[in-house]
């Protein structure tokens, strides 16, 4: 499967080392639809591909958005791309967040760091009331006020969406919470039997949040997480992203905690 040719339509520096690319397909106005939680394989010329979740609105059919943290060679090459530059894209791949489970439920969206990116399309979708969620709350923990993704957008959404932000380190301008995300989660009024949670962030953060959610009475099958493993082919053929019996690229990246608990708690799997 060869990458399709896209071009950078927009590049936004979110904070140092983390940026969002809006990309359009060369010669095509409509892109294949994606489900919140899915990912694309992005190719910067000559430096290899990297799996990056879609972070824009699923309703936006002309552009894909990707929020990328510059970390390895491939993401560093992506970081150098400017408006108009070419980029290769394969995807979308993977299963998304099970959005059909939210009707009548209390939805808890729990994000940590750049783990906010794959959850943003879900927020876009849930803002469209058609899914029938009884209540939607976002709990988002970031490192620093400057490292809150989509901050101005979240501020705009604050009147219609229940948002709890917390940072590990504040600064002189930060009037909000300082501390870890499990704290507001612990004190939040959550109806465990009615709630469904969607988590994305570092595995450590997800581990602690899961423990908190379980004490809140959520069932294991109502906790969904997005996993990160090394994805090369994205089609379940290269073997890299194996995690127990799962291929994260095709069986995930979203799993219900109930279905993966025994794997989630094994180290170095």
């Amino acid at each position: 499967m060869i990458p399709a040719l896209f071009r950078i339509d927009e590049r936004k520096e979110e904070f140092s080392g983390t940026f969002t690319l809006g990309i359009r397909r060369e010669g095509e106005s409509a892109l294949p639809r994606f489900k919140p939680g899915q990912f694309n394989m992005l190719y910067a010329f000559g430096t290899g591909e990297v799996a990056i979740s879609l972070s824009g609105s699923p309703a936006d059919t002309g552009v894909y958005q990707h929020t990328i943290r510059s970390q390895g060679l491939a993401t560093q090459a992506l970081a150098r791309l400017q408006k108009g530059d070419a980029i290769g894209v394969r995807g979308p791949f993977g299963c998304g967040w099970p959005i059909d489970t939210v009707a009548g439920r209390e939805v808890l969206i729990i994000a940590g760091g750049v783990g906010m990116a794959p959850l943003r399309p879900l927020l876009y979708s849930l803002r469209d009331k058609a899914h029938g969620a009884a209540r939607v709350r976002l709990f988002y923990g970031a490192r620093h006020p400057d490292e809150i993704l989509y901050r101005s957008e979240l501020e705009r959404w604050a009147d219609s969406l229940d948002i709890t932000l917390t940072v590990d380190q504040g600064d002189s301008t930060w009037r909000g919470r300082v501390g870890v995300i499990t704290q507001p989660l612990e004190t939040a009024d959550i109806n465990g039997g009615k709630a469904v949670a969607f988590l994305c962030g570092p595995e450590v953060m997800m581990r602690f949040c899961i423990q908190t959610l379980l004490t809140k009475g959520l069932s294991e099958s109502d906790i969904y997480l997005s996993m990160e493993r090394n994805m090369k082919c994205a089609t379940g053929l290269c073997g890299h992203c194996q995690w127990g019996p799962n291929f994260v690229c095709k069986d995930g990246p979203v799993f219900s905690y109930g279905s993966v608990r025994s794997w989630f708690n094994l180290r170095a799997l």
Binding site: Y43, F45, G46, T47, G48, E49, K232, C233, L237, C238, G239, H240, Q242
Partner: peptide, 26 residues
């Protein structure tokens, strides 16, 4: 054992790139 990886390379000009697939090991 079926695992494979890919290698992306460019020539010295930087204008020509190739992707190779090769056997890999866990």
């Amino acid at each position: 054992c079926f695992c494979s990886t890919v290698e992306d390379t460019t020539d010295l000009s930087g204008d020509n790139a190739e992707r190779w697939e090769r056997w890999d090991s866990c």
